[in-house]
Amino acid sequence: MTPEFLIGNITLFMLAIFIGFELITKVPATLHTPLMSGANAISGISIIGALIGSNVAFKNESTEISGILAFVAVTLAMINVVGGFAVTNRMLNMIAGKKRGGA
């Protein structure tokens, strides 16, 4: 890891934080929960880390624990991602009243 790479990453980190602060301004109370749940699904982005990690771990068969951990991480992250987007979608459909039923 070169210092340039690290500084590049820190730059990304800071700029993304600024964007995040600016993105959310006035949100009606009705949308607080769906917004929270949608953002929560996005935080399941660690699925990427889990995928890369598990591939590397399976390559070095010597480190079994790391492989198992990575597999569990893939599963948990995927529950977070798919479940999060699905549940947000269901909530929004109910609030907007476009689709009836469910539950």
Binding site: A16, F21, L23, N40
Partner: peptide, 18 residues
């Protein structure tokens, strides 16, 4: 990994504002 950093901090910041 760049996308983890971007998406993670986006959610971190917007979640805090929320």
């Amino acid at each position: 990994n760049s996308v983890l950093i971007i998406a993670g901090s986006l959610v971190g910041a917007s979640g805090l504002i929320l």
